[in-house]
Amino acid sequence: MQIHSGSLAPPSAVTVDAPARLHLGFLDPNGSLGRAFGSVGLTIDERGTRITMRLADALRVDGTRSDAERARVEGYVEALCAAWSGPPVSIDVQRAPRAHTGLGSGTQLALAIGTAYARLAGRSSGSAEIARILGRGARSGIGMLGFDHGGFLVDGGPAHPGEGSGHFHTDVPPLLFRQPFPDAWRILLVDDTTREGLHGDAEKRGLASLAPFPQALAAHLCHLVLLRILPGIAESDFDAFADGITEMQQTIGEYFAPVQGGVFSSPTVAATLEAVAARQTAGIGQTSWGPTGFAFVRNAEEAVRALAAAQDASRGKPGIVCSIVTGRNRGASLRAVDLQQCGIDAQ
């Protein structure tokens, strides 16, 4: 979703619904050809973020899950206010996925807040400007591109990685490929709620500790994406897609294994997904640093089988949550209301 250019009459309240995303892997973490990372991802129809923002006399934040999330929201608003000299607002976080689970919660929350704030401030700023202000999307563009477009996406990575591990150019990676995800296909999600994926300083240290990614493996990943995964999506060839995703995930997971404890960050999620793949054709892997894992299956009937297999394999394991979702082929949505014209107090 993009805010179109031109003057915008500020409403009194704005609600933004932003989709969650699966990060399916990097193309070249080492940037052997000058473009580090490059990402493959998909937006999904569940686990999204919804916020409502209103004009107010002073900043107020409600509905956050934790003090850390509240501080993050306040920091986003302060940065936007400093950049645009905008009005004070109140924010109600009505829905957000658990943080650090691989669903892109931080980027979606930031973009939802930035989009709502831009609308209330009467600005035509788009997602790329918001991402730069709030420091999102410098490594992977899947979150921002998913927010704007939805669907199955590939980005080209940042053009100029910064000097030193963990520092990156602030330009948002370009969109290289966007295709609707086939309606019939389904995704099993397996979350280990006892764990969080790497983030913050631990993520930076982990990335800095890894050996350079071999150029031959980067070439292999690009080959898989270009000639197996993308044709599979374009032609609804599930077997080609699932095989490509599983091989890509295994390759990139082995590279990150030293800092996340294995190809999957949760051994229980790994065992659960392997049990599913042993019983039916499925494309399995982990989104971002996990702990959420996924299994792509070809239709709703196969999804029922996959869910039953996952529940059976994880029975007695604490904290494991399994669910079925579909792909989402649209980006975020915005609904603006002038409460004062409706005779409602905007405060």
Rank of each mutant, 00 (worst) to 15 (best):
D243V: 15
A257K: 04
R205D: 10
A300F: 02
M248T: 15
F238S: 03
H169Y: 09
G200K: 00
I187R: 08
D239M: 13
F296T: 10
L198G: 06
S236P: 02
A295P: 05
S209V: 07
R298P: 15
S266Q: 03
A216G: 04
L188Q: 04
A219Y: 11
S288M: 03
A240Y: 08
L210Y: 02
E203R: 05
R205M: 10
T268M: 01
A240E: 14
L175H: 04
G283P: 09
W289V: 03
I284M: 06
R205H: 11
D171I: 10
A278M: 09
D183G: 06
D243M: 10
G232F: 12
I233D: 04
P174G: 10
F168N: 11
L230G: 05
F296M: 12
L226Q: 14
Q250G: 03
A240I: 05
F294M: 09
G200D: 08
A184R: 14
I229N: 03
R298G: 08
Q179I: 11
V190D: 10
P291V: 00
D192C: 01
L230P: 01
F294W: 08
V297L: 13
L230S: 12
F294P: 06
P231K: 06
P173K: 10
F294R: 04
F177A: 15
L207A: 11
